[in-house]
Design a protein around this nucleic acid. Structure first.
Length: 281
DNA sequence: CTAGGATCCTGTCAGC
DNA sequence: TGCTGACAGGATCCTA
């Protein structure tokens, strides 16, 4: 699931649970999921957590850092005295760890952090703290919607004027943090058809899209904590917070909450895309 | 430089 | 039941 709000939820959970804990060792079960060498982190204390778009960075007190990107199916599960699970929601949230999807186990003083990733697209990368900003992904990353002025956003859209607006919003060098869900939710909120060319989006619509992205993602962040609590409390219950707030995502054939028209699903920018044909022009 | 499709990988589900 | 193809909450690489 991991788009910006989910990664922010992971970050907040880890701040509460493992900040200032000492890293003991790592067990790498899938070498493909790891870049760099965990040796540099052994014995160091976790002193900071940062998020860059959908990427999470853990900083240690010896000038080494650990960057984690969950991509499509990554999740992090902390098992100490308490349990915390966030990222891509699967049955593994409530299962005994490790599972068959566990790629790396990070042992801290007081518990273990399990990096699970069904499809192995995600990764952990050990690097010098000063090199975090030089990482290819982070270096190219655009601002997040809260820090972006309409003018700058508009200009970035012109750079991708021949792409559909959905593709432009998914491009992390245009705006950081949106993935397939929040792009659809944002465009619904802004009343813009995902198939429109980015260059045809008016300045006013661009402003609505920016505001929509902020609103939609902030709501998800605010809901994140309680959702996780629900997940852990429930004995196997598969509740999804998507159901709580999604206006269009995975609602194909259902009535639009705003106008009652059937929500449609199309392939746009190579991704399953949900929208209301009446509310989004 | 951009745009669009293929690709990495595993799992699930619909249709035969 | 078993097989096949499509698809999946991401990003990069390749080609035109």
């Amino acid at each position: 699931m991991p788009e910006l709000p989910e990664v922010e939820t992971v970050k907040r959970g880890l701040v509460k649970l493992i900040l200032y804990k000492k890293f003991i060792q790592a067990e790498v079960r899938e070498s493909k999921s790891v870049m760099g060498d965990f040796k540099g982190l052994i014995g160091a204390e976790l002193v900071g957590l940062r998020r860059f778009g959908k990427a999470l960075v853990m900083d240690f007190n010896n000038d080494w850092s650990l960057m984690i990107h969950l991509r499509m199916t990554g999740q992090l599960i902390w098992q100490g005295e308490e349990r915390f699970a966030a990222g891509h929601p699967t049955e593994d949230f409530v299962r005994e760890m490790p599972s068959r999807h566990t790629r790396v186990i990070l042992e801290f003083d007081g518990g273990k952090l399990y990096f699970n990733d069904q499809r192995k697209f995600g990764f952990c990368k050990v690097l010098r703290t000063v090199e975090v900003g030089e990482d290819g992904f982070i270096k190219k990353l655009a601002k997040e919607p809260w820090g972006m002025e309409v003018k700058e956003f508009w200009e970035k859209l012109q750079r991708r004027k021949n792409s559909v607006i959905k593709a432009a919003l998914l491009d992390q060098t245009v705006i950081a943090g949106l993935g397939n869900i929040y792009t659809d939710e944002t465009l619904f909120d802004a009343g813009v058809d995902p198939r429109r060319r980015a260059g045809k989006v008016t300045r006013q619509e661009a402003e609505k899209i920016l505001e929509g992205a902020r609103k939609v993602m902030q709501r998800a962040i605010d809901a994140g904590g309680s959702t996780m609590a629900t997940y852990v409390r429930a004995d196997g219950t598969k509740g999804s917070y998507l159901e709580e707030f999604a206006q269009v995502f995975q609602r194909e054939g259902q009535a639009c909450f705003r106008c009652g028209t059937e929500i449609k699903k199309n392939r746009v920018a190579g991704r399953g895309t949900y929208f209301c044909p009446r509310c989004q022009k």
